[in-house]
Amino acid sequence: MNISVYGEDRGALVHFDPRTKFVIFLVSLAVSANSYNAAAHSIYCAVLCGMLFLCGKKWNAVKMSLLLGFAVYIRTCMEMQATGSTVIVTIISFLVTIFLYFFPMLVSLLIITQTTRVNQFLSAFQAMHIPTKIVIPIAVMFRFIPTVGEEWNGVRKAMAFRGMSLEPSAIIRHPVRTVEYILIPLLFSCISIMEELAAAALARGMDSSQQRTAYEPVRLKAYDYITIILFLTVGIWFFAAGLITGGAA
């Protein structure tokens, strides 16, 4: 099992607060949904890669920015030339654009899931006096998304071992059966992990009504405030631009 999946920030150049990362995630969602300007969108994506680098996942940041550069390059090439078989151009431009659409969301999710430990997340939000009923589901969700991916890979390998493929043709011919073959093992393994997670959390006193103390202090520092303000400005700018363009069109 790859331990680094669950987030550690030992290699971080700047230790950002989990709240800062959460603001970045929300702003990225807004940017994805409201971006009408390709250049501004690409710049925002590049800044996100820089954030990932600062948070300590340097190799991942380099990989993501290479992918981003490649996608933007293909897109620019196709816009400049506008030749070639329509079908192929449509398919490729579709793949590129869907990649670009989900890029901000993906990278900000990486920033949260790969460089934040769940205990940091919990103590940061409890310091803001947000009730645990809201914090726990969100924290568990971010913690669990990589787990689902891992289990998904495991199920796929196990299926291949038994000679069942997940090819599109198989899905079209036997949709319900394929769903059953994938879903049931996935759900079973996820449920057992959930139970272990709940037991572990309760054993560490997660449901205690007392104020939690943190092993390492979680506090917003000057650079956190600067980053939050910068990202919020960008987010509001994108949102306003989206409203104006949408309304004018």
Binding site: T132, K133, I136, P137, I138, A139, V140, M141, F142, R143, F144, I145, T147, V148, L186, L187, C190, I193, M194, L197, A198, A201, L202, M206, D207
Partner: peptide, 15 residues
């Protein structure tokens, strides 16, 4: 809801 159930809900949400 108890903590355990909050954890279940969050995990099912991820799924």
């Amino acid at each position: 809801l108890r903590t355990k159930e909050l954890i279940y809900a969050g995990a099912f949400g991820a799924l």
